[in-house]
Design a protein around this nucleic acid. Sequence first.
DNA 1: ACTCGATTTGACAACCATTCTCATCTTGCT
DNA 2: AGCAAGATGAGAATGGTTGTCAAATCGAGT
Lengths: 145, 145
Amino acid sequence: MTNTEPKTEPTTEPRTTPVAGGRPTKQRLAVANVLSTFGDFRSAQEIHSLLTDSGEKVGLATVYRTLQLLADSGEVDVLRTEDGEAAYRRCSDSHHHHLVCRSCGATVEVEGPTVERWTKAIAAEHGYRDISHTLEIFGTCAACS
Amino acid sequence: MTNTEPKTEPTTEPRTTPVAGGRPTKQRLAVANVLSTFGDFRSAQEIHSLLTDSGEKVGLATVYRTLQLLADSGEVDVLRTEDGEAAYRRCSDSHHHHLVCRSCGATVEVEGPTVERWTKAIAAEHGYRDISHTLEIFGTCAACS
DNA sequence: ACTCGATTTGACAACCATTCTCATCTTGCT
DNA sequence: AGCAAGATGAGAATGGTTGTCAAATCGAGT
Ligand SMILES: [Zn+2]
Ligand SMILES: [Zn+2]
Ligand SMILES: [Zn+2]
Ligand SMILES: [Zn+2]
């Protein structure tokens, strides 16, 4: 039947393609899109809910796979919440941390070069590379005092 | 036998292990003891294996409960590895943070007034009180580079 | 030392986020 | 169109952690 060439001619072959993020499928675009809608960290399950609620039909496994892809390619930041869940956010956002009221949950995004410099300096001082860090500040906000 | 120990005597024995909050049971002492034999972070499951291998019969649930107790009372440090597992380690008395190799787990305790001042300043600036914070630094150590 | 109520334990079930499986679409390309 | 590699999704499997609850243990009071 189909008597094509036994093998595809390796003349101009796919190996040169840097599949950083793979194919731009609908599902992946949807995940990337929802990520760019929010500036803060969201869990994979949360992202999946947002997608299904908005009518997009994307499987949970695909959400996880896409987030891992994006994380591996450096397009999103990933961190672990205190109870062990992974949270993702688009990394084009400026790096920042959170000041959270432990009573009402009111959150303030904070940032500053001070702590960033400090962590880098500390890490370099001990010979560590590829530094990342997690920092959360908890307190009682003025309204809850 | 020696049943006439003077009650007024403060501490006569080598080590009365004061376990956090609750009763100093055999199981809790065993967990606390195994923690003091290691300087780096160990998972709960790992600690449980160490205990059972050494003959101590302690249930896994009890290990988890004890570690939570110790963590809540500040006697051990707890952090989340980058793959989401909780890791525990005996804690030194002073407030500090950790620089952890994400490859081999090598941990350096770091501290400094810089980040402490920064968090307090940020919090005060936004009217928050009773400030606490969590900060972990991850990287690849020199040996793993 | 004995009793009794409160605490703690442990075997196992339940949870839940994440990953795996694999049959079935899609996409990219000719 | 036609094909093969890549991607998807429904559900099962995984694995760490927590919940359940009867039984064991502790310890203060007697
Ligand atoms: Zn508040
Ligand atoms: Zn930072
Ligand atoms: Zn290392
Ligand atoms: Zn600190």
